[in-house]
């Protein structure tokens, strides 16, 4: 989430190109060819040997890599449909199909999966919204205003990221214990407290992504609005925020995905099983009874993954640029 990314600004340019790559780009790049392949225009009907030498082997590699990529996911989906399955019986792929594991996921009293799911959603959404808001405010001032300490401020944001919250986990834990002694509502074992900790990492890489995007909005728009009598707040909330909506979506999404799979801080701060998130709950669940309830775990994992994967695939085109520039998973 708040990892230090020295390369983020530099890499932006080239990564935006990735986003367009989905559409096949056959037309403009005729004669160049890839490494190891002789040039030449593709013939409509090629003998197999030539076909294989030119593109067939590429498909072969694609299939092998595709299997490598997809297999663990098929395995976990299969395991989730395996009724009362253990780790051993999950090995028979798609042999028995039932929704039992999904049902017991929500009905068993030992693990409040529904609560974990809701907690993860709520914590993730609030953190994402807060991160977008705080980051946009800061990016607006860095992009549009000139003040003493602006350059220093930008550099400091980068330097601070060298000490990510992950490293400060001990201090954050002790701080939350101390806060919890006096204000239990925002201290240890409080979700509000966890969200506040996450928001501590809101400025940083995200601000940089936004700052770069804000700079691409011409400041003549602000000036025109100013001449028409709009104040800074009106310009920010009604004009700028609309123009930078794509980057807000990207940052919000990255923050949501990052928060919803964050383990270290959540595991240290949230103690009651009812308050925990999916990452903490599922880890504890599987480390307590590893092989026995494998299919229940698999069902939990599939459900937990559906939302992030769907978001990622649906918005792939838009977020690949931001994602590769802004964070490494």
């Amino acid at each position: 989430m708040s990892d230090f990314r020295p390369g983020a600004p530099a890499a932006k340019g080239l990564l935006e190109k990735v986003a367009d790559e989905d559409t096949e780009i056959t037309s403009s790049r005729g004669g160049s060819g890839g490494a190891g392949v002789p040039g030449g225009a593709p013939a409509p009907r090629r003998p197999f040997r030539r076909y294989f030498r030119e593109t067939g082997w590429r498909h072969l590699i694609g299939i092998v890599v595709g299997i490598f990529a997809i297999f663990p996911l098929l395995y976990v989906i299969s395991a989730s449909f395996n009724p009362n399955g253990t780790l051993l019986t999950a090995n028979g792929l798609f042999q028995r199909l039932s929704l039992d594991s999904y049902v017991s996921l929500f009905t068993s009293a030992q693990h409040p999966y529904g609560a974990w799911f809701v907690n993860t959603l709520v914590i993730g959404l609030i953190t994402a919204a807060g991160t977008v808001f705080l980051g946009a405010l800061a990016a607006y001032s860095f992009s549009r205003m000139r003040f003493t300490g602006r350059r220093v401020g930008l550099t400091t944001l980068l330097v601070v990221q060298m000490f990510p919250q992950l490293l400060a986990v001990v201090a954050i834990f002790l701080l939350m214990v101390a806060i919890g002694d006096i204000f239990p509502a925002i201290g240890l074992n409080s979700q509000i407290g966890l969200i506040m900790v996450y928001l501590g990492g809101a400025l940083g890489v995200n601000t940089y992504l936004m700052y770069g995007f804000f700079n691409t909005v011409p400041s003549s728009i602000d000036e025109a609005a100013k001449i028409d009598g709009a104040g800074h707040a009106r310009i920010f909330f009604t004009i700028i925020l609309r123009l930078v909506a794509p980057i807000l979506a990207v940052v919000g999404l990255l923050s949501f995905i990052g928060t919803s799979s964050e383990f270290v801080l959540a595991s240290v701060i949230l103690i009651d099983p009812d308050k925990q998130t999916l990452a903490v709950g599922l880890y504890k669940f599987i480390s307590d009874e590893f092989s026995k309830n494998w299919s229940v775990f698999a069902a939990g994992a599939v459900l937990a993954a559906i939302l992030p994967v769907a978001l990622f695939l649906a918005l792939q085109r838009y977020i690949v640029g931001g994602l590769t520039a802004g964070s490494v998973k």
Binding site: V65, I70, Y75, Y283, A301
Partner: peptide, 15 residues
Amino acid sequence: MILPYAFPGFLSALV
């Protein structure tokens, strides 16, 4: 090939 990247990392490791 993007699927492993989209799947939440902690779950991949557990699987």
